[in-house]
Design a binder for these strands. Structure first.
Lengths: 138, 138
DNA sequence: AGTAACGTTAACGTTAACGTAAGGTCTTCC
DNA sequence: GGAAGACCTTACGTTAACGTTAACGTTACT
């Protein structure tokens, strides 16, 4: 171990994290601008990300993959309106999160429907393909 | 039945459909520009939507809710590159659709993870809230 | 201590997915 | 048949989520 290497307190630079999560450093900085993460800094002002920060980023990306906007995600994880008092803010986030959980359950069902839709489309395409092939060489 | 009312061949105007699906007529026209739907027209050039068109729109909206872009959706349902020959196009769409189906299965798992993440966030928030309340009135 | 590789902010550019406004056409209903 | 209301196209505006320079500071290595 060179110096600052302590298996539990693994930290990353912005580009390391970006590579791991397959996004750009710019994207990560952008999420910070939006108030979704706030990593600590080195004395030289460079960002340092902990495993927790990484987990949060993964959550953000997951949310994104389901079409949630960054603003929505910000509310879900309770980092919005940091100017109001904390109790009110936390209660707001809790309520928001509960709504989003319901939404997620809806989406589960919806996802199944999407799957069925796509399966139906596939069947039709396969059928049409067979017809065309029969036409081609009868 | 007044005249053109044939329970199976229900048709809709653009604004009727928009209201049903809770989107704007402009959005529907936009999807058409993108090649996602192609409703028939009246002699006077107005769009008429069938139940099939409606189902397709629902599919589009479902796809959107999961973060698929309109271009991706276009490929999934087999309406892209209408200039190449049909067999090739259909095969392309089939392959694309299969990939997307896999993606959907991944997302199922992912959605469960997102749910767990959010539940974890909720627990933390609740805990923090209790702390704050204990502080407030000890 | 020099320098390559990486990091920082600031500011402008880009793209997808519509919104909106203008000006004209259809349909419907009296 | 004429006015209201819905529909049409065209075209420019808007917003979210980054991408892309530019101009400069920091870290790591030799």
């Amino acid at each position: 171990m060179t110096s600052q290497e302590n298996r539990t307190k693994q930290t990353f630079t912005i580009s390391q994290l970006a590579a791991q999560l397959d996004i750009s450093p710019r994207a990560i900085r952008f999420y910070e601008e939006k108030g979704l993460i706030s990593p600590r800094r080195t004395p030289g002002n460079q960002r340092i990300y902990t495993a927790k920060d990484r987990a949060r980023l993964k959550l953000i990306l997951r949310g994104k993959r389901f079409g949630f906007s960054l603003d929505e995600i910000a509310e879900m994880i309770g980092m919005a309106d940091t100017d109001v008092d904390e109790v009110a803010q936390i209660e707001k986030s809790l309520a928001y999160g509960r709504r989003k959980l319901e939404e997620i359950r809806d989406r589960m069902r919806d996802l199944i429907l999407l799957e069925q839709d796509l399966l139906a489309v596939q069947k039709k395409l396969e059928k049409r393909l067979e017809e065309l092939k029969r036409e081609g060489k009868p």
